[in-house]
Computed example of a mutant assay.
Amino acid sequence: MLRSYLRLILFTFGLLAGIQVPGFIEDYAQRVDAHRAEAEQGLSGFRETAQRFFKGDLVALVAHYRASTDPVMRSDADSIAHLVARAELMQREWQAMQGTWYRRAWHVLALADPGLRQETLAGYGYQVLLKPEAIAWGLSCGLLLAWLVESVVLLIGAAAGVGRSRKVQQRHRL
């Protein structure tokens, strides 16, 4: 009986943890989108200048600033280069978050920008989503966790000889 309750507790814990996955992925995607919009807004004036004088090439604009004899312009070149790099990063992250559910999950788990992932985690509020995707994640994680823990416990018990009947133990002694 205790074993059944432990299974239920493990399943419930896995279910609740699994339900968080789609919510976290969605929060990450929203954060990326917000940062992308902010980066584009910060570059808008420079994009207009690059369009007018360098056929839209921001790299050429940065090179022009770096080649200037004015120290202020050279200093601004680093700032613009940083803005360009940030906008490109946000665009790549946004593109990655437009894929299928499993690509999005893998991206957030393994390939996401560490700073953005940490920022999302710091601002994440636990939630119970009742969307089919969240329910599927919850059930899958609950079953997987319960199965893994029970399998490990049974393997350890089998290796230690726990759970064998006396007849089986006597047969193996002979």
Rank of each mutant, 00 (worst) to 15 (best):
E38C: 01
A50G: 09
A50P: 12
R31Y: 12
Q51G: 14
L16H: 03
E38M: 10
P22R: 04
G42N: 13
L16V: 11
Y28M: 01
F11L: 10
A34F: 13
G14F: 06
V21E: 10
R36M: 07
R52I: 06
F11M: 02
S44P: 06
R47S: 12
H35A: 15
R47L: 03
S44D: 15
A29W: 03
R52P: 03
Q41M: 13
F54Q: 03
E40S: 05
P22C: 11
G42F: 09
V21A: 14
A29I: 06
L16Y: 07
R52T: 15
F46G: 00
E26Q: 10
Y28C: 03
V32M: 02
Q30A: 10
L15F: 15
E26A: 12
H35L: 15
R52D: 13
V21R: 05
G42I: 09
E38N: 09
H35G: 09
Q51P: 02
Q41S: 10
Q51T: 14
H35D: 15
A39D: 12
I25G: 02
E48A: 11
A50W: 08
V32Q: 01
R52F: 14
F11N: 01
G42P: 10
L43S: 02
L16S: 07
Q30R: 11
L15M: 08
H35R: 15
F24C: 13
H35I: 08
F24G: 13
Q20R: 09
G18Y: 09
A29R: 14
R52G: 10
Y28D: 06
F24K: 12
G45F: 04
A34Y: 08
A37V: 13
I25L: 07
Q30N: 08
L43C: 03
F13T: 15
R47A: 12
F53N: 07
A37R: 05
F54T: 10
R31P: 02
F11K: 00
E48M: 04
F46M: 04
S44I: 05
F53Q: 04
A39H: 05
F54D: 04
F46S: 08
Q41C: 04
E26C: 01
E40Y: 06
I19D: 05
Q20S: 12
R36L: 07
V21W: 08
R36N: 10
H35S: 14
I19C: 05
F24E: 09
I25H: 00
F24Q: 14
A17F: 14
Q41I: 12
R36Q: 10
R47F: 01
G45N: 03
E26H: 08
E48D: 07
A37Y: 01
E38G: 00
E40M: 13
A34I: 12
I19N: 06
E48H: 00
G14M: 07
L43M: 08
E40D: 13
L16K: 08
